[in-house]
Amino acid sequence: MKKIHYIFSFMILCAIFIVIVLPMIPFFRMSPFAFLLIAFRSTIFLVLAFIFLLIQIIFAIFAHKTRIHADKKGILSTVIIMSLLLGGTWYYSAGNQVYDLHQVPAKKSGQIRILSWNTNHAIEKDELLSVVKELKPDIVFFPEEWQGQNTKVFDCDLDVPEDQKPTHCYLDSLIDSYEYFKEESPLQTLLVPKKYGLYSVESGEPYYAGFFATPPANHSESPYILLAHIQRPEFGIGTSWWQKHMEWAKEKSIYENMIAAGDFNATLGNIGGHQLGELEDMAYALNQNQAGTWPTFLPAFLGAPIDHIFIGKAYKPIWFGVLNTSKKSDHRAIFGIVEKVNR
């Protein structure tokens, strides 16, 4: 019985080694399996702790019935392994702070308010509009939301000739913003206020990756914007799409007055740091342990923070939070507030 106990303990130690060490190996790091290990290490440690505890209870019951006394080495190894598992759960966990909509700071002059929400096209238009009106964001990123023709979230009139591919329309009666979309990026929609001017949506990005929007030349205070929906790594496909999409996003993220946001399908651990090109992750800049944004059925501290807002050096982060939004979507929304740096 003791031999079986030692073998089982050794297997748990091997599992701990795999979860911690394998993602550090360069050639393994870019595999879909490594992505899952990095994103959900806390959950894996917690599951291993539960299994280990359950087996220890079974061993204890059996030992009591057979009057086999545990030796000091067995007790010590059990304590050490359980400490490693619980410590790993705590160390690798995401943040647990999730905010209700009314907890988001009120709108102030001179600030830019940013909302990003991968709704998984599961949220009704009226609910989306209600969230937007309550939070009063300036820029809204919908990495995976479309309703109707031309991927528009909200119905609006297209103000381009019929022989051209539409890229925007004006939401006059709703929130005084332009709505941007692309035929080559059929899942993504971007809302930008009219006061920022009419943006041009660039061509040439990888399919489904999102799109890059450039402000008009006569609006120097308006930010460059990148809406991201980076393809997730998948078994059978690998990470080649994800790497290609991330390379595109990093190449575009070179401007000081730039904001990039959306679903990156990666934690900062997957990305390998807190930078996207020349931009910095907002949660990291505010010294926050970002709560998990996906999936919503897991508690926030066990989820994976794969949705991000990155900002250029021209902006100072004021507030960032993961929001308690509808569980109809498998992603929680994120919200950020920045202001221009005085130079």
Rank of each mutant, 00 (worst) to 15 (best):
K2M: 11
N265W: 04
A260R: 02
T267D: 08
Y196Q: 14
I337E: 03
G312L: 00
D159N: 15
I337W: 04
L135Y: 05
F301Y: 07
Y284M: 02
Q97R: 14
L76H: 04
A260Q: 07
E221R: 05
E162H: 11
F28I: 10
Q164Y: 10
K327R: 11
P223V: 01
P295T: 07
Y99M: 12
G336W: 01
E247N: 10
T189I: 00
R113T: 01
A49C: 02
A209V: 15
G210V: 10
A34R: 02
H229Q: 13
T267Q: 10
P137S: 10
L298K: 03
K133Y: 12
A300S: 09
K65W: 05
P193G: 08
I112W: 00
A60L: 00
I7F: 13
T119L: 04
R113F: 03
F45C: 05
I81F: 07
L174P: 02
F212I: 07
Y178N: 09
L190T: 14
E127M: 08
K252P: 02
K133E: 15
K340Q: 13
L85G: 04
L115V: 04
G87M: 01
L13R: 00
A283W: 00
D100A: 13
I225G: 01
G87V: 03
Q231S: 13
G87H: 03
L174K: 14
P223S: 00
A213C: 09
I225C: 06
A209P: 15
E183A: 08
I337M: 04
H308E: 06
D172K: 15
F40P: 03
T119A: 04
F264L: 10
Y196L: 14
W242Q: 04
Y91V: 11
L226P: 01
S326M: 06
Q231M: 12
A261G: 15
